[in-house]
Design a protein around this nucleic acid. Structure first.
Lengths: 336, 336
DNA sequence: GATTTCATTGAAAACGATTACCATTGGTTG
DNA sequence: CAACCAATGGTAATCGTTTTCAATGAAATC
């Protein structure tokens, strides 16, 4: 059994209050402070965080609920959240909800039991629609997906604009039959789709879309089915990295050339996107920044709970590469 | 302020002990049990985990200390650890130690303060050499890297054998000048290097190695420097996914063809390895299994602390692909 | 020199659960 | 009918901290 504060106090010949003050940076004479520090070192004393949290009523812990840590987007975000959190003296509890509203509810309940200081959460469309922030005693910062404005803080990408940007890039490179493949569970897919439709409508071009479950396999299957139909698009926009990989698999196994048989563009600058052929054109999200901003917003909210809710909208940047037949992209890839 | 157990007791007209028994599955008459459950539901009561942990002296929490969650190897492992942990009613605290012994020590101290039930840890070579398991009150399971046998439980890959396997694959495909690029911080790099040397020695072939810091950029720089020398190998073995990516970058930017100018093989079946050219030959680690086994070992150890220490050695599987000019690999890639 | 002020320190009361121990009840048995 | 027992509920101690409050003594003010 490890040493308790009482042992330290006895060893140093002071009261437990004094030890606590030394640890917490209170006012203690230099002499006692040294005696206590020596005792702490000699006994190898480590405070019990459960006791501390119970008494002081703040956990210094944040919950991070993502859909799947294996998605490079979320690993980058979580790394950023952790960096900022640990630097601020807070711990992080990570949960994978697998885009499943039941699991989300379960983890939210768990966060209450932990009495976390706050939660950073990337919810499904389902949960976002019926989320009642007032049910929880901790502030929530939504990331990637956003709910009805003003309910919680949020940091998201300008998905609509990014969707438009991708379509316009393709139009600018001469493509006219531009298909879209979007995730059907998250709100990001919906918004990117909206941008896609808006850009096409603006140019008087027809749209052709498929909505799929959020998995590489589902995307591959959808593209496979599409290729079996008589009439495919000559360019395809895919709404996130996981789905994009599925599309690549389906096109490769069909022996089709990118971009000659079908151009391809998508979201998320995952490492592999630079390595398919001469590179895939993608919208790069500021993944690390998203995590940093989310955690900083949470810290600010804890500092000042009554502050008006904020929504930070970040912009993606277009990385033109060879998969959309972009000469700039080709040149860049060769040079790199 | 949320409801406490006392409020529930008053609401239901019973004592706090009865409420606690209902929650903990003790012996309570059916009638009172129903009254309590109703009260819990109506008040939205959630037990305070800090209080529970303080009193019951077990945290039901495990620490997971990895070097970087952005490394796909560790994301897969961590996902597995979490799945098993949450299924066993335990929470996971994740820490990134960045291959830095100081950070490792800091997080280990944090784990003590949290009074975690156990820790799963992927230490640097430095920490592994001077790790004193008896300093900590929780059991530790080492993953990926292993310390002196018998000190802690461990689950690792048979790195030596995997290194040999890769060399023999290359020799079998006619390569004779086989270089090696290994990480210099972790023990995995050392062991894989040992297997590499052993296999070459067995065939009477010369070795040529470089050791680098564990980053993609360091690997790219090393390969770049190597290519500037007059005499490079005609095949290169790289000791992990991060470094392998660096090698690919360096070779690509030098305009060299894989495998015509240089064959390439490595470790970790990260998604992108299947997408470079017609695929990179790699040793695939059973990443998810490693996490599952590690967490299960930890649970077993908690169940029975006096059990003899175990070390589980898993085998990698060779995925022959086009980067080593492997016809089997080529065919497979085309078919997939 | 007496009174006020101030910085230190210690004693003890929380924090919110679990649980050992005791008291009550009603039924069964000798 | 007395006595014992099983089942159930309540009381209070406990976990290891932080924090309030009062006490102490030294310095400062008048």
């Amino acid at each position: 059994m490890s040493a308790k504060i009482k042992d330290v106090a006895e060893w140093a010949g002071v009261s437990v209050a004094t030890v606590s003050r030394v640890l917490g940076g209170g006012a203690v004479s230099i002499e006692l402070r040294e005696r206590v520090e020596l005792a702490v070192a000699q006994l190898g004393y480590r405070p019990n965080l459960s006791a501390r949290r119970l008494r002081s009523q703040h956990s210094k812990t944040v919950g991070l609920i993502v859909s799947d840590i294996r998605n490079p987007f979320f690993t980058a975000v979580s790394r950023a959240v952790e960096d900022v959190a640990y630097r601020a003296g807070m711990r992080v509890i990570l949960c994978n909800a697998d885009e499943d509203p039941d699991k989300e509810a379960m983890y939210l309940r768990l966060m209450q039991e932990e009495r976390v200081s706050g939660v950073i959460f990337s919810p499904t469309g389902m949960t976002v629609r019926c989320f009642r922030a007032d049910l929880y005693e901790f502030p929530v910062v939504m990331i990637d997906r956003d709910g009805p404005t003003g309910l919680t803080d949020a940091v998201v990408l300008d998905n609509r604009q990014a969707g438009k940007m991708l379509v316009e890039h393709l139009i600018g490179h001469g493509y006219r039959k531009i298909g879209g493949l979007f995730g059907k569970i998250s709100t990001t897919g919906i918004e990117r789709h909206a941008g896609y439709e808006a850009a096409l409508a603006q140019h008087g071009l027809p749209s052709a879309v498929r909505f799929v479950a959020p998995s590489t396999e589902a995307a591959a299957a959808a593209v496979r089915a599409w290729l079996a139909e008589p009439d495919w698009p000559d360019a395809l926009i895919v709404s996130n990295g996981l789905l994009l990989l599925g599309a690549v698999h389906a096109l490769t196994e069909a022996g089709l050339s990118i971009p000659d048989d079908m151009a391809l563009a998508g979201f998320d600058n995952d490492v592999w996107t630079g390595l398919v052929g001469h590179g895939l054109t993608v919208i790069e999200q500021p993944v690390y920044d998203i995590g940093v901003v989310a955690m900083e917003m949470l810290l600010a909210r804890l500092e000042n709970p009554s502050m008006a809710k904020r929504k930070v909208v970040l912009n993606g940047t277009l990385l033109p590469r060879a998969s959309t037949n972009c000469r700039a992209g080709l040149a860049q890839t060769r040079a790199t």
